[in-house]
């Protein structure tokens, strides 16, 4: 039995948020390691984060080439066998939808522009490991930085997402044309999470902007509470 859960941060060619993601989790009770895209060994890993960036230069479609990498093949087994939880941030969310580990897809913003700013987000489901320290309807602020953040999903899945509480966060204002202004979702089992905003960029209390760390902390603490650790 280990003292702390192990959190792996996936790195693909073109990932560029792995360092700040590492730093953001450093204050939390986890052991951190990077997961190289060619190395599919997820043994001993409890939590996986797919950070932001431009894996494979967004070639073909954002997340499309990462999706056929050995690491994502291993991740599929990790999810199927319920070995642990997965969180995709921005490009990581795109990879997870491409891999069909999360429903829907993320395509070019309706404006055709890259949107890079702080946005207000409404908490839609406060009963998930990620959002449980927040309350329903509470508005938090996180930065976004994406060109392909328009969340689209077919009508029947869209209805199910809402019925099953799989919608985590919505944008208060329409910033990219997403269906129902959806900013983050989870899978039906509640083991895979994806969001376009960057919680790892809102973790510094000195800058008075702790909303991101609240999400990450609650995610890690929820895992710890459901599993026994000695530390």
């Amino acid at each position: 039995m280990s003292a702390q859960p192990t959190l792996g941060i996936a790195v693909f060619p073109g990932t560029n948020c792995e360092r700040e993601t590492f730093e953001a989790f450093r204050s939390l009770p986890v052991r951190l390691r990077y997961l190289w895209y060619e190395d599919p060994d997820l043994s001993g890993v409890d939590l996986v984060v797919l950070p932001g960036g431009f894996s494979y230069g967004d070639y073909l479609r954002a997340g499309a080439i990462a999706r056929i990498s050995p690491l994502v093949d291993a991740l599929r087994v990790f999810v199927e066998q319920e070995q642990g939880w997965v969180l995709g941030i921005c490009n990581g969310f795109q990879v997870l939808t491409e891999a069909h580990l999360l429903p829907g897809a993320l395509i070019q913003n309706t404006s055709g522009r890259f949107v890079c700013r702080r946005v207000a987000l409404r908490v839609e489901n406060p009963h998930t490991p990620l959002t449980r320290t927040l309350s329903a309807g509470e508005v938090i602020e996180l930065p976004v930085a994406h060109g392909e953040g328009r969340y689209v999903v077919d009508a029947s899945t869209r209805r199910k997402l809402w019925e099953r509480g799989q919608v985590l966060l919505t944008y208060v204002e329409d910033i990219n044309g997403s269906v129902d202004q959806i900013a983050g979702v989870m899978n039906e089992a509640g083991t895979v999470y994806g969001m376009m905003p960057h919680p790892e960029r809102a973790v510094d209390p000195l800058r008075g902007w702790p909303d991101g760390i609240r999400l990450l902390q609650s995610w890690v603490e929820s895992w710890r509470e459901q599993h026994v650790y000695t530390g």
Binding site: L60, R61, I68, T97, G104, A105, V152
Partner: peptide, 8 residues
Amino acid sequence: GFLSNPVI
């Protein structure tokens, strides 16, 4: 399954 994404 790869060159296109049937969702979109």
